[in-house]
């Protein structure tokens, strides 16, 4: 078991280094790029949410963008004063955004996990279908700006002034770090272990007396809330929201990030989002249409051959104390 112990230590060092590097990026990189990376951090938070349900609990959702989009639209609608009585406060907007995503996630979980629950394939297709429905519905909604979306979403301000790129980056990094700590704590808790057992064999866990439906619902709702949070943060920085934020395309994109990064390790999922969207930004200019082909091939190869993704093994932390062999 010495090898495993060392592997865990490598993971710990790599995880620490990763966050230190991300802190350093805030000093070394110019403002324009920094704003980009801050947006990638939104994707990273989104990816960590997905890694919780997919990597940990084995729930393959093709509709996570519903909650990302709900957060983005929720934040936009609230801060643009389109709802009576909410005002335009940033905090109200965030609360409303996360609340909306949470409620939607709970509703979808209630629909799909109820009774005997839908099997993996059914769940994947129903969520895929739900994402399509929501995207079409928002495109058709005049209130939400239809196909064009909503413009002029308020950025974060401090004392009446817009927060500059660098502090904004550190705010985003702080949020991402907090989410990382939270998701990692869940994954390493006894609850996380039960989720892992559900992934391997749900029936067996149910026979042991666990209410798997409730356990899965909780995970799904947490992931939905995180998606909503990331969507709201995205809207605040990007300044506008459009139907593509809650459709099939983004839903599958986040699956690629998480698969390529490493589905079962939250930090790996986040780094997957950073690396893939960063690479997309730099390479899609030089490679053009070839880029999507390249990422498609990488994705397929990773799914076939590397279950832990590119970074899953690197950032794997030592197992929690209670599961360690003595």
């Amino acid at each position: 078991m010495i090898g495993a112990k060392r592997e865990g230590r490598t993971g710990l060092i790599a995880t620490g280094l990763c966050w230190i590097i991300l802190c350093g990026v805030g000093v070394l990189v110019d403002d324009w790029l920094l704003a980009q990376v801050a947006i990638y951090l939104c994707y990273g938070i989104f990816a960590m949410g997905l890694s919780l349900i997919w990597g940990q609990a084995g729930i393959l959702s093709f509709g996570q963008a519903i909650f990302f989009g709900a957060g983005a639209y929720g934040f936009a609608v609230a801060t643009l004063d389109m709802l009576p009585g909410t005002g335009t406060g940033i905090l109200t907007g965030l609360v409303f955004a996360v609340g909306l995503a949470t409620v939607l996630a709970w509703a979808l979980a209630w629909l799909t996990f109820a009774g005997r629950g839908l099997s993996g394939a059914h769940f994947a297709i129903v969520t895929l279908c739900a994402a399509a429905v929501v995207e079409i519905a928002v495109t058709r909604s005049g209130f939400l700006g239809g196909y064009n979306g909503l413009f002029g979403v308020a950025p974060f301000t401090w004392g009446g002034e817009m927060i500059a790129e660098r502090p904004m980056y550190y705010i985003m990094l702080g949020v991402a770090f907090a989410v990382f700590l939270g998701v990692t704590a869940i994954v390493r808790s006894p609850y996380g272990t039960v989720l892992e057992a559900i992934r391997d064999d749900e029936n067996r866990v149910a026979h042991l007396g666990y209410e798997t439906r409730r356990l899965k619902t909780v995970a799904f709702v947490i992931a939905g809330a995180l998606s909503g949070l990331s969507g709201a943060l995205f809207a605040a920085q990007f300044g506008f929201v459009s139907p593509s934020l809650l459709g099939f395309a983004l839903s599958t994109q986040v699956l690629i990030w998480v698969a390529v990064g490493g589905r079962a390790v939250p930090l790996a999922a986040m780094v997957g989002a950073l690396v893939v969207s960063g690479a997309e930004n730099t390479l899609s200019n030089t490679l053009g249409d070839l880029w999507l082909l390249v990422i498609g091939v990488i994705f397929v190869v990773v799914v076939i051959a590397a279950k832990n993704g590119l970074f899953g093994t690197l950032f794997r932390l030592p197992p929690p104390k209670r599961l360690r062999k003595t």
Binding site: L60, L293, V300
Partner: peptide, 21 residues
């Protein structure tokens, strides 16, 4: 099972992009 869904979806991306190219 779940990986076949993902992998074939990746294949669809590749085929679509190949057609575009």
């Amino acid at each position: 099972f779940l990986d076949t869904i993902l992998a074939t979806w990746g294949v669809s991306l590749i085929l679509k992009q190949g057609v575009i190219l």
